[in-house]
């Protein structure tokens, strides 16, 4: 359903207000981020990734979501068997129990109370469908293709310009005001233009994560977030570690 439709409609919904568009916000999002011609991945893998990205953006408030068709910079690593998403969660998604102890200790030394302010970290998100069956080998291949921390400028930013769904925080209105961005279609993937980096609330966190990756993260085995989509568009997220990592005592 992706191939013939997009070209005529692509330009149409940009000018009028989106309410009049016959397409849903999600459909417009799909149309705005097409599979690049040189991508090694299948269209359905791409669609799956888009759907997960959409869920991350609008249900969980993630920002700076990028799609990686070939996320490994090192030459030796194989390319992943499917497109991978990276993004920045609104809060820190995972904290190793030892790091938690460390953070709490520092808080006590500084005589601070309350929730510690830890910067969010970029996470790898691997989209999957519930009806797939996985093997340990596929997990291993996926981890081998991923770097420890997703690079800030790797991959291509996704274009969320046309999707104005419910439950979006203030940042969306900002990007919506510039909804006439002509590069909306062209940006799709592989373009370096970051669409979502201009979000207000999380900019302070991004700078810290960009500058120095957390030593707790680099010292630990790799991790990824396995996003599993079901037919009813539910997406569940599970943190998968590439090795023995003791559980959080949450």
């Amino acid at each position: 359903m992706d191939d013939p439709a997009p070209t005529p409609r692509k330009t149409a919904p940009i000018q009028p207000p989106p309410e009049t568009s016959p397409l849903s916000g999600f459909h417009q999002f799909i149309l705005a981020n097409k599979l690049p011609k040189d991508s090694p991945h299948t269209p359905h893998a791409h669609k799956l990734a888009l759907q997960v990205a959409h869920n991350l953006r609008f249900q969980h408030g993630w920002t700076d979501i990028r799609l990686h068709h070939d996320p490994s910079r090192q030459v030796s690593a194989p390319s992943p068997p499917r497109p991978v998403i990276s993004g920045l969660p609104p809060q820190r998604l995972y904290m190793h129990p030892d790091e938690q102890i460390d953070v709490l200790q520092r808080q006590r030394e500084q005589r601070k109370a309350g929730w510690p302010d830890v910067a969010p970290e970029r996470e790898w998100v691997v989209p999957s469908q519930l009806r797939e069956s996985w093997t340990l080998r596929r997990f291993a291949e996926m981890f081998d293709a991923l770097s420890a921390v997703p690079g800030e400028k790797e991959g291509g930013a996704l274009n969320f310009a046309h999707s104005r769904d419910v439950g979006v925080e203030g940042s969306e209105s900002g990007s919506g005001s510039s909804s006439g961005t002509p590069e909306g279609a062209g940006v799709a993937n592989g373009s370096s233009t970051p669409n979502m980096t201009a979000n207000g609330p999380t900019t302070n966190g991004e700078t810290t994560t960009a500058s120095q990756p957390n030593r707790w993260r680099t010292g630990q085995p790799k991790r990824m977030l396995l996003a599993t989509l079901d037919d009813d568009s539910t997406v569940v997220y599970y943190i998968v570690h590439d090795g023995l990592v003791k559980p959080r005592q949450n």
């Binding site: 969980h60 969660p89 995972y94 977030l225 599970y238 570690h241 590439d242 090795g243 023995l244 990592v245």
Partner: peptide
Amino acid sequence: VRTFCIEWGGM
């Protein structure tokens, strides 16, 4: 032996 640990993402 390669192992993978899975925890709920909490989202």
